[in-house]
Design a binder for these strands. Sequence first.
DNA 1: CTATGTGCAAATCCTTTGCAATCCA
DNA 2: TGGATTGCAAAGGATTTGCACATAG
Lengths: 154, 154
Amino acid sequence: MPRVIGEIEEKLRAHDYKMTPKREQVLKVLLENKDKHLSAEEVYNLVKLRAPDVGLATVYRTLELFSNFDIIHSMDFGDGRKRYEFSSQSMDGHRHHHLICIDCGRIIEVTEDLLEELEARVTNRYNFVISDHELKIFGWCRECKPQKKNDQSP
Amino acid sequence: MPRVIGEIEEKLRAHDYKMTPKREQVLKVLLENKDKHLSAEEVYNLVKLRAPDVGLATVYRTLELFSNFDIIHSMDFGDGRKRYEFSSQSMDGHRHHHLICIDCGRIIEVTEDLLEELEARVTNRYNFVISDHELKIFGWCRECKPQKKNDQSP
DNA sequence: CTATGTGCAAATCCTTTGCAATCCA
DNA sequence: TGGATTGCAAAGGATTTGCACATAG
């Protein structure tokens, strides 16, 4: 039982929510898959392996709850379902970006932020107070990279 | 009948698709609302005003078709439905960014790109060939901006 | 004990699809 | 004429919700 779970339990309890066994199962699955971007159903399937008596609705409700507390973050890579990842933002204050390969679908994380200049500009020019951002970069990954030579594709 | 429509007609025809009257209605609605981010149903309602004999399915199919030809671009602001905008990218080669007010929901466009440095880094460091990107910045707009003084929230 | 959490199934919402009719080249 | 296009209604997929029961504190 990592310390993280205890901390999150506090966070919930402070707002009169409980860290129930089922919510803990969901949380563990998310913690053990920090590098992945699981959909609700994928989380459900993983939770089911250990706690078969969990319903899909509970998983959805739990994900919603965790999202509201910024424990996890939901995102959308355009495949029609929300995907979730453990929110490292709460730790280092920085969101990372995602490279999405439009060929194989692989998701690569970019940990550098590098949006300071742009954010400063937005803050000044548009009088906009930034709370968060989300950057998706589409293209071809190392493996799916198009050949440099003889690439005459339309 | 602006020139744009003719150009797009060519684009479609080159791939054996027709610019039918109904598709043209959809296109006109999009052209007249370049500054908005309409959902399929909103497009449908606007088209209906002038051509009541258009079905929702046709609007969906047309939006899909236009998307495939990069005539329009679909995006998602997290409200559970796709939104579309006329693709200015095909003109200046640059996608713009969106500021999303998490209070009133207003969408503000940022025309500067300013992602060159980051893109260069991604290209080199991750060996990733970039084709496109999408940046959403969340926060509070000019009007919804939290007060500086006495802001003890939450 | 009492409010909160949960499972199940039904409901909802957006989007897609099957099919027969219609249209255009 | 014949393949592309369309309307309608039904299907589909992800997510939400109503409700009776189970559970935590």
